[in-house]
Amino acid sequence: MDNLWTALEPHVIELLGLVLTIIIGIAARQLSAWTGIEIQKRHREALHEALMSGAMSAIKHGPGVGLGTLKAHAIAHAHQSVPEAVKALVPGDGILDAIAERYVRDALKKLDQPAIADR
């Protein structure tokens, strides 16, 4: 029995090393995916908060200027407030505009301002 164990021991150790390497690789991949998701989530939340505060700021400085101007102010505010989030998320054409419009309209409702047309 000792001879059998002596003959198999290097192979068993090699097999255990391989199994541990695979487990560590899977764990590292999962951790990387999880942290990437968390970072993206934080960027997304920061961008939305910047668009909301930009919309409120724009409306307080002149709600009658038109929807296009208010959206542009909110988007410019987001670019200045969280440039790393904008750079990391790379929102496609019209995405920031659509989100900004939503927040501008929400801010107008909160301040009891009449709905404005896009001008």
Score class of each variant (00 low, 15 high):
7 A>Q: 15
9 E>M: 07
9 E>Q: 10
9 E>G: 04
10 P>V: 00
10 P>F: 09
11 H>R: 14
11 H>A: 14
11 H>N: 12
11 H>F: 14
11 H>T: 11
14 E>N: 08
14 E>S: 15
15 L>A: 14
15 L>N: 05
15 L>F: 07
15 L>M: 11
15 L>Q: 11
15 L>K: 08
16 L>A: 13
16 L>N: 13
16 L>Q: 05
17 G>R: 15
17 G>V: 06
17 G>F: 03
17 G>Q: 05
18 L>A: 11
19 V>G: 03
20 L>R: 15
20 L>F: 12
20 L>T: 06
20 L>Q: 05
20 L>Y: 02
20 L>V: 09
21 T>C: 07
21 T>S: 13
21 T>W: 13
21 T>Y: 08
21 T>V: 10
22 I>P: 03
22 I>W: 00
22 I>N: 03
22 I>S: 12
23 I>V: 14
23 I>S: 06
24 I>Q: 07
25 G>A: 07
26 I>Q: 09
26 I>T: 09
26 I>G: 03
27 A>G: 04
27 A>D: 01
28 A>C: 04
28 A>E: 03
29 R>F: 14
29 R>Q: 13
29 R>N: 10
29 R>S: 13
30 Q>M: 14
30 Q>D: 05
30 Q>S: 09
31 L>S: 07
31 L>V: 04
32 S>T: 11
33 A>W: 10
33 A>Y: 09
34 W>P: 00
34 W>Y: 06
34 W>Q: 12
35 T>K: 14
35 T>F: 15
35 T>L: 13
38 E>Q: 14
39 I>N: 07
40 Q>F: 04
40 Q>K: 10
41 K>P: 02
41 K>V: 06
42 R>P: 00
42 R>S: 06
42 R>N: 07
43 H>L: 00
43 H>C: 12
44 R>H: 07
44 R>Y: 02
45 E>M: 13
45 E>G: 08
45 E>L: 15
45 E>F: 05
46 A>S: 09
49 E>G: 10
49 E>R: 15
49 E>L: 11
49 E>C: 08
51 L>H: 02
53 S>Q: 10
53 S>F: 12
54 G>R: 01
55 A>Q: 02
55 A>E: 01
56 M>L: 10
57 S>Q: 13
57 S>P: 00
57 S>L: 10
58 A>I: 02
58 A>S: 11
59 I>D: 01
60 K>C: 06
61 H>R: 11
61 H>D: 05
61 H>F: 02
62 G>D: 01
63 P>W: 04
63 P>D: 14
65 V>I: 14
66 G>A: 05
66 G>P: 00
66 G>E: 03
66 G>V: 00
67 L>M: 11
69 T>R: 10
71 K>Q: 07
71 K>C: 09
72 A>K: 03
73 H>V: 14
73 H>P: 00
75 I>Q: 03
75 I>V: 15
76 A>S: 06
76 A>M: 12
77 H>N: 08
77 H>Q: 13
77 H>R: 02
77 H>V: 08
77 H>T: 12
78 A>P: 01
